[in-house]
Computed example of a mutant assay.
Amino acid sequence: MEQRKKIAFLIAAHSDPPHLQRLVNALDADADFFIHIDRKQPIAPFTERINKPNVVFLTDRDRVKVYWGGFSQVQATLNLLKACMAAGDRRQVTYKKIVFLSGADYPIKNNDYIHRFFDEHRDTNFIRGMNITQANTAKYNYCIRNYLFFNFQLHSPILTRIVRKFLNVTVNWFARKPNHLLTEQGNRMDVFHGSSWWALNSEVVRYILAQADRQNEACRYFRLSLASDEKFFHTVFFNSRYATSNQKGGEEPYVPYTSAFANLHLIDQSLQKWFGPEDFEAIRTSDKLFVRKVSSRHSVALLDRIDRELLRTNRSTE
């Protein structure tokens, strides 16, 4: 029997080592894992629990301090993509799909189903998005037109908020960005927005990495924007020749909340809800592959039931 191609799972995590271990164990079937641990956190509690030949933790050289809303989230993801592609090249492996997850995710379909799903959609890139340049709404213009300073944190959370607010207000008295960007070649790029969590083919990942290296103007534009991780990758994708290769055949109409553009995840509209046992029926009937957000603090009973009834396993984190 021909060996099936591997899936690469990229995971961005900052807390909950027991759940990260459980997540890796749940997906560990013909898969490689590339994990970024927020550099603000010690990595040892994660590496002591997860020691497998197919798991790569980014080293301190490639780990970044991740701040909510900041470009640091984009940089951490780019570093994961680079590590994944470099490993694939060394091993002469072309991954079936490169799937970006958070450390608060969990599969709700078993591994055979996930592999079959990606086999049946081998040419599809799972990244949905809307054109927020054309939408021209106050909500998203605030995110991209203002110079917003989220890529730092002082010793005091209160002082951090005060300084950020001062910078955000003061700088934007004097200057604002357009709600589109211009490349160094003078080409206009509309800005797109969607969910942070996606699954892409290798050729698209290579294209994104090449654009990130070449398009310094794009990186500068998003470096001082809000929630760049929900815009940077989508903007590069939907301004490329791959724009119609996603599951919707291209961009979608404007909707004023991010969860509407979930790709493979069941996500609450608030983006903040922790799923628990009361949500099992919604998870069981979902056509998504993953649920977000779950944890070892809020969701153990739910995860145990997912293992028993959906994944058909009796899993332990130990």
Rank of each mutant, 00 (worst) to 15 (best):
M1K: 03
M1D: 00
Q3D: 02
A8E: 01
H19Y: 04
L27S: 02
L27Q: 02
D28F: 03
A29Y: 11
D30Q: 12
F33N: 02
R39Y: 08
P42H: 06
I43A: 10
A44S: 13
F46Y: 07
E48G: 03
N51L: 07
P53I: 07
V55C: 05
R61F: 07
R61S: 11
V64I: 11
W68K: 12
W68V: 10
Q73N: 15
V74M: 09
A83C: 09
C84P: 04
A87C: 01
D89S: 15
R90K: 13
K96R: 15
K97G: 04
A104Q: 07
D105N: 08
Y106G: 03
N110A: 08
N111F: 01
D112V: 05
F117L: 06
F118C: 07
D123Y: 12
T124I: 15
N125K: 04
I127A: 05
G129S: 10
I132Y: 04
Q134W: 03
N141D: 14
C143N: 08
I144Y: 02
L148M: 06
Q153N: 12
I158A: 14
R161L: 05
V163K: 07
F166H: 10
L167W: 03
L167H: 00
T170W: 13
V171A: 05
E184I: 11
M189L: 08
V191L: 13
G194N: 09
S195P: 02
S196Q: 13
W198T: 07
V204A: 05
V205Y: 01
V205L: 09
A210N: 10
R214Y: 11
E217V: 10
E217P: 07
E217W: 13
E230L: 09
E230G: 06
R241E: 12
G249M: 00
G250Y: 00
F261K: 06
A262T: 06
H265F: 12
P277Q: 03
F280E: 04
E281C: 12
I283S: 08
T285G: 06
D287T: 12
K288G: 12
V300Q: 09
R305D: 08
R308H: 14
L310C: 14
